[in-house]
Simulated scan of single mutants.
Amino acid sequence: MGELRRLACLGVPDGGTAVRPLVWKLLLGYLPTERAFWPHELEKKRSQYSAYKDEFLLNPSEKIRRFEESKLLRKKELNSDKIGLLPRAKVTNEEHPLSFGKSSLWNQYFQESEILEQIDRDVKRTHPEMPFFSAKANQESLRRILIIFSKLNPTIRYVQGMNEVLAPLFYVFKNDPDTSNSASAEADTFFCFVELLNGFKDNYCKHLDNSQVGIRSTLSKLSQLLKRHDEELWRHMEITTKVYPQYYAFRWITLLLTMEFSFNVCIHIWDAILGDPEGPPDTLLRICCAMLILVRRRLLAGDFTANIQLLQHYPPTNIDHLLHIANRLRGSVAS
């Protein structure tokens, strides 16, 4: 794995469509290092995802219908006219669509509707310029993944912009030339998405914003990193012009740079983020710091307005040079 990480940091070669899906699955820990275990692990995870879809994507009436159907089957009281139906007199308060009970499936369903609507809106806005993401089937896959994630992670749920983090993973796995893998891209993407966000989840928890592990702490680490490597630039940014990281780096960090570069360039940057042995969170901060150093002359010459505009609309750059600068900062992120 050490050699694989080293090579990934250099970037998967152009035309790496065939190898990148496998490399990312290994780097994210979705696949074990022992190849002999791959078939069993993939079958287990894909089956688990199928169970998640059954559990989390059915509407309450369908859940109740299936529950009643299985109950009647056990009692051997089914007949052709009443399969899965509840007699009106037997509909309990908790099963009624107007119930406000905490255990009511309908109450939970309506409370989640706002999140589902936000997911729908964001999925439709995901890279509309790319035919791949405009395809209905692919949008439905993204939607299902985000819904299941939100229900399995109630402390985070869905945070606007997660669709942008999900998109590169799904794109890479869905375009796997191995049809058996591309057919299961949705399941594979879900578990890799979970693994990826596991290292960044504190950035998405509102109740941790002011803690030592939340997004403000992460932004503070970026500030410290810049000060350590370029105090002149840090002083101009944060003391002279008062351009603090929260004004420009919040999006960089929470969306893993997906909005700062073109999609293909982002894929290349992610090779390094996923492959670096220091781990994605520290690697991302080093790349963010390198982005500042790379445009230091323009930043030192700019005032508050000019620098905000520059960093919120980061200019096209040589990505290999950017990653080279980030690599020189290795081992310097504050713990």
Rank of each mutant, 00 (worst) to 15 (best):
L226W: 11
R228E: 15
D230C: 10
D230K: 01
E231K: 10
E232T: 13
E232W: 02
L233G: 07
L233C: 11
R235Q: 13
R235S: 12
H236C: 06
M237V: 13
I239T: 13
I239W: 05
T240G: 06
T241R: 08
T241L: 05
K242Y: 11
K242Q: 14
V243D: 12
Y244P: 00
P245A: 11
P245S: 09
Q246S: 04
Q246F: 15
Y247D: 02
A249W: 02
F250P: 03
F250R: 07
R251H: 13
L256M: 07
T258R: 09
T258D: 03
E260L: 03
E260Q: 13
F261C: 03
F261I: 04
S262G: 14
N264Q: 15
V265A: 15
H268K: 15
I269R: 04
I269M: 05
W270N: 05
D271K: 01
D271P: 03
A272N: 14
D276W: 05
P277Q: 04
E278D: 14
P281R: 13
D282L: 15
D282S: 12
T283N: 04
L284I: 04
L285C: 03
L285A: 01
L285H: 08
R286W: 05
I287M: 10
C288K: 02
C288A: 14
A290Q: 11
I293M: 12
I293N: 00
L294F: 12
L294D: 02
R297M: 11
R297T: 12
L299N: 05
G302M: 05
G302L: 07
F304K: 02
T305L: 13
T305R: 09
T305C: 08
T305E: 15
A306C: 08
A306G: 05
N307H: 06
Q312L: 13
Q312T: 15
H313F: 15
H313N: 15
Y314K: 00
P315G: 03
T317R: 09
I319V: 10
I319W: 00
I319G: 00
D320E: 09
L322F: 06
H324A: 09
H324Q: 13
I325V: 14
